[in-house]
């Protein structure tokens, strides 16, 4: 079981994802440089957070044209597991692997803080280890996390249970007050129709050790391991 962390110029959470897999999950993991063009031997790809290409033009817009992205698309089309975190989520929407877009935060400010997530679907490769009703405490750190999709798209997402995480209070109430960035329907994470590509704004790799303030991010990684082991 091998993980790959894709490194674009300007990625800056690549190290965090790498260390979580290596030091906390104790599974094999490698960095994958954006100019590489083979993804043989990987079971799960992580597109990490950061500011790929400075997030100039639009977040993720330039990164999606990196040589590796064509391989990522093919990997995903073959059913491979892809987790896009923060900037990685933005890249996945730009690349068309996930529906919707991430706009500037409603009040235009960058937010770094812990948020609480309600898990809407526990029957996915990324959430199968999470008990229904469990509220996850995981940090966000972004300036462009305001999820948007048109009405038709939203209805389709809901119908197909593609909305995975929603911003909620610590008690699990989805409310405006719990919404840090103005995201439509409090959406914090969505999955592809086939269920193998997840994008989320919160950083599960930052919630993997007690000394960092939460270990709830491990539920997501544990789900992945669970799923891969059963394959």
């Amino acid at each position: 079981m091998k993980f790959g962390v894709i490194v674009f110029p300007g990625s800056n959470c690549d190290l965090d994802a790498y260390h979580l897999v290596k030091d906390v999950l104790r599974k094999p993991v490698e960095y994958i440089w954006h100019q590489q063009n083979s993804l043989k031997g990987y079971d799960c790809l992580i597109l990490p957070g950061g500011f790929s290409y400075g997030d100039y033009l639009r977040c993720g817009a330039i990164a999606r044209f990196s040589p590796i992205m064509q391989e990522v698309v093919e990997f995903a089309n073959r059913g491979g597991l892809v987790l896009g975190i923060c900037n990685g989520f933005q890249i996945l929407t730009e690349a068309g692997l996930l529906p919707g877009v991430l706009l500037r935060n409603q009040d235009l400010k960058f937010y770094c803080q812990f948020v609480h997530l309600k898990v809407e679907n526990v029957n996915t490769p990324f959430t199968n280890f999470i008990e229904p009703q469990k509220i996850l405490k995981i940090p966000i750190a972004h300036g462009d996390g305001n999820y948007y999709i048109d009405e038709k798209g939203l209805n389709s997402l809901l119908e197909k249970k593609q909305v995975i995480f929603r911003y909620a209070t610590a008690e699990g109430v989805v409310s405006d007050e719990a919404n840090p960035n103005g995201a439509l329907f409090n959406i914090a994470g969505v999955i592809s129709e086939k269920g193998n590509v997840l994008g989320m704004m919160p950083h599960p790799e930052r919630a993997g050790e007690t000394l960092l303030g939460s270990t709830d991010g491990l539920f997501i990684f544990q789900s992945l391991l669970n799923y891969l082991e059963k394959l």
Partner: peptide, 10 residues
């Protein structure tokens, strides 16, 4: 400080 990413590098 909420506008600064103070957690990156975990």
């Amino acid at each position: 400080y909420g506008q600064y990413d103070y957690m990156v590098r975990t």
